[in-house]
Structure formats: C-alpha cells, structure tokens
C-alpha cells in the first residue's frame, strides 16, 4: 500500500484519483509512525520548492524519510525536495540525491514554465517498464534538476538536457506528472507500486 506524504504542498486530488483508477490502495502519511504503515511512499508537490521544504520540515518527517529503505517516489516539487539545493527560494533540500535544482535560463530562447508534453529518453529502469522510449509525459515546471549521469534514469531536453527522472538507491524522483501523463503515466505509477522493497 502506498503512503502519500501529506504536508500541505499543493493538491493531491489528481494523484489520489489516478491511484483509484488503477486500483492501487493508498493512505496518508501525517506523522513518523504513519511511514511504517505503508510499503511505498510518494512525496507529491506543486508550487514553490523553498516553501514546500519549509512545510515538510514543519511535519518533522525529513529525518524519518531520509532513513527509509522502502521505495520512495518524489513527483515534481516532491522530486526537487530529494535534491541537495534549489535555486527557488535559494533553499537547502533534503539532500538525498546530491544534485541541484536550477531555474531554466530564458536566455536560451525558451518559454518558462516548461509546460506541456515532452519526450523522455529513459534508461530501462524498472520504473519505466513497459513504457516505450521517447514516450511523452506532461511537464509543468520552471525549475529543473541538473543532468547527472550517476543518478539520471530518464532525460528530457528543454533548452538543454535535464533529468526527467532520477534514482538513488530506493529513492526515485520524476519531474513530470505521471497522474496527468495519460496511459504512460498510469503505467509508471503502477510500476512504482510494484517495486520490490
């Protein structure tokens, strides 16, 4: 069963709806002890990364999340929380995956936010099982995770390549919104729920 970290950063209705459509059971994580109730943990998030980190810190869940050995998936800002630092609010993140979250550079002639469907080049990670390479996912973000070959499991390009998905041990992050990415996104959520402990 999936536990969704409920720290008040953005709406989770779309995520819970997607899990319901997929018949994946889920519950909410409000306290440290709640983390023990679930086999898999999702950290959602939309909005401001610095503000989201503050909210997560207020729940007291940062240290217990960092200590987890079960599969954890950060989505969008939830993924950015896994990184070392974000330029959004110049804020330190959880530093689980030692990469930086940076602002897109409008001088590259790109519009910000990066909004819409973009294809990803994935590296056959189990998270992407059954997802054809270069499938498009739905993105909406102004900050991105710098490409680092050690942790990158899917790359997208907008102005320059960035990490659409990362992994370090049991921690996974996706920049796109699987709950809004059609059938491919639903498959990814299903794959996550099937990851072995």
């Amino acid at each position: 069963m999936i536990g969704i970290v409920n720290y008040g950063a953005g709406n989770i209705f779309s995520l819970t709806s997607a899990l319901e459509r997929l018949s994946i059971p889920f519950g909410m994580v409000n306290t440290e002890t709640d983390l023990d109730k679930y086999t898999h943990i999702i950290i959602p998030g939309v909005g401001h990364a610095g503000a989201a980190m503050k909210k997560l810190e207020q729940t007291g869940l940062v240290a217990p999340i960092k200590a987890l050995k079960k599969p954890v998936l950060g989505i969008c800002v939830g993924m950015q929380l896994l990184t070392e630092h974000s330029e959004e609010g110049n804020a330190d993140m959880m530093n689980i995956v030692p990469v930086k979250t940076r602002l897109f550079d409008k001088n590259q002639g790109i519009k910000i936010p990066h909004m819409g469907w973009n294809n990803i080049d994935h590296k056959n990670n189990s998270l992407f099982e059954g997802v054809e390479n270069l499938t498009q996912f739905y993105f909406v973000h102004s900050y991105f995770i710098e490409y680092n070959p050690t942790f990158d499991i899917a790359t997208a390009s907008y102005g320059k390549p960035f990490s659409a998905a990362v992994q370090k041990d049991n921690f996974y992050g996706v920049q796109f919104h699987p709950e809004k990415s059609g059938i491919a996104g639903e498959r990814l959520l299903k794959n996550f729920s099937n990851l072995k402990q």
Binding site: F13, S14, S17, A18, E20, R21, Y138, V140, H177, E179, K180, S181, G182, I183, G185, E186
Partner: peptide
C-alpha cells in the same frame, strides 16, 4: 471538476 479529475488522465 472533481468528477472530471477522477476520470481524466490529462491536464
């Protein structure tokens, strides 16, 4: 809006 969000897998 809730009913749409429950069913729809696009934004």
């Amino acid at each position: 809006v809730k009913s749409v969000a429950r069913q729809l897998n696009i934004p």
